[in-house]
Design a protein around this nucleic acid. Structure first.
Lengths: 148, 148
DNA sequence: AACGAAATGTTAGAATTCTAAGCAATGTTG
DNA sequence: CAACATTGCTTAGAATTCTAACATTTCGTT
């Protein structure tokens, strides 16, 4: 009989497949790749963050996020701004066009997920939501500082 | 107030971050990259599957999985075998060495996850396990054929 | 102030993954 | 059976991401 940790390990490896299931068929928008879309959404929800913050949120290496930010800037969707007294730090803000596209992506994404889940019962949806909330709460606990 | 589908959409995008949290710090083994390790585990648990099956399970494009299988074969960990009367299909089986390394990866992975979760209470662990089981069950429901 | 250590962001090149086209084998339809 | 579509896998080239090294700025200690 597996320990609880082992059982969880077995389950965790299936999460990418779940993501794939939910996301497949999501149409592209405005010549943006997946990371660019995620980044735009992330900047929209947490505007004025630094490069490092966004790269962590998106799970990208710092260098990779530089590429993404360059691309979004070139497309006129975000701007780099010197935002504090720390002259190493750049802050990203959405342009008007970037804001409009971010909203569009958000709307379409939610429609897509809703359509994907349309075959589930209301009870299943409620369970799923609770499960996801549990996972997010767990993640936050794991991020709490060790000594504090 | 968001609909349930919208709420779920908001939560789903946080899953990759959860994965990252759990997996960070996992040491490398035997010069295998992440996909190669996943593939080895997958072949170990579901031996004798076809290339297409594994690529789906791993969430990789078919062409990408060819690369991974090539690499594992070159390293002497798996073998391609003609496994059925359908001469298009290749079947993958582990070599003795591949089997040994797969077990080692499995052990280390479970130890890693267990260590990561060590700070959580038994109650939290139980909730997490249930949440993951709910998600996997949901995925299976979403994979059921539309008409059947 | 001065020194080294750490943090922020960029760059270059390698590694990984994807897309699209192609080949061979099988399935389907008339 | 013949023609066509589909499936399983591979290949080639492009796109994406990673790693490691770097320049700049800030922090911490003396």
């Amino acid at each position: 009989m597996p320990t609880r940790g082992e059982a969880i390990a077995e389950l965790v490896v299936l999460l990418p497949m779940f993501m794939k299931t939910l996301l497949e068929g999501l149409e592209t928008i405005a010549g943006l790749n997946v990371s660019e879309k995620k980044a735009l959404m992330c900047i929209c929800k947490h505007e004025g963050g630094t490069m490092s913050e966004y790269s962590k949120r998106l799970g990208l290496a710092k260098g990779s996020f530089t590429t993404v930010a360059d691309s979004l800037e070139k497309k006129g969707l975000v701007e780099r701004v010197l935002g504090s007294d720390d002259r190493r730090k750049w802050v990203l803000v959405l342009t008007q066009k970037g804001n409009r596209i971010a909203r569009e992506i958000d709307t379409r994404f939610k429609q897509h997920i809703t359509a994907k889940l349309a075959r589930l019962s209301e009870e299943d949806l409620e369970k799923l939501q609770q499960a996801l909330e549990t996972i997010v709460a767990t993640m936050e606990k794991l991020h709490e500082r060790r000594y504090g």
